[in-house]
Design a protein around this nucleic acid. Structure first.
Length: 145
DNA sequence: GCTACATGCATTCTT
DNA sequence: AGAATGCATGTAGCT
């Protein structure tokens, strides 16, 4: 299947099975996941977020200026500060996470990789994680030795 | 026909 | 001029 532009994101689950399944983490509730596209990993440093889940589980935005959002990196325990905002779009909204360039670069994210956002209800904070094709291969290679 | 969203692109800011 | 910003446009996939 191919998609040149537009269209809905992946719905109802993941298209490929990673070697590890980091979206299942004890104590964390999955809020959303996003399969990264070219524009998400470009130099623009912004990631489009799925509208339905954003509106359901991320903080309500009353202004398009949005707000700052902190997320704890599950891989390296780093604390990231992003800007969470929306753009007006066809009488609706497009939700965007900005200042994501460092995160994408740090983890070498590629097209087809996934990011996952969890809510840690106990500590009342958001947690960010990824599922990367490259990382999965490394895990497989490490296990085969 | 409608919606969500990937990306195009005009405008604004920075150097 | 080049980069960043913010909205507009085109369209895949639903319905």
């Amino acid at each position: 299947r191919k998609r040149r532009s537009g269209g809905r994101g992946p719905r109802g689950g993941v298209r490929w099975m990673p070697a590890i399944r980091p979206h299942q983490v004890a104590g964390l509730r999955v809020i959303l996941q996003k399969e990264l596209r070219n524009s998400d990993i470009s130099q623009l440093g912004r990631i489009v977020l799925p509208k339905k889940e954003s509106e359901a589980y991320l903080p309500i935005l009353t202004s398009k200026d949005g707000r700052s959002l902190r997320m704890h990196d599950l891989l390296n325990a780093q604390l990231w500060t992003f800007k969470y905002r929306y753009w007006p779009n066809n009488k609706s909204r497009m939700y965007v996470l900005e200042n994501t360039g460092d995160y994408v670069r740090t983890h070498n994210l590629r097209v087809g990789d996934f990011i996952m956002i969890y809510k840690d209800d106990d500590k009342n904070r958001f947690v960010l994680n990824l599922s990367s094709w490259l990382l999965s291969i490394l895990v497989i290679l490490a296990r085969s030795r």
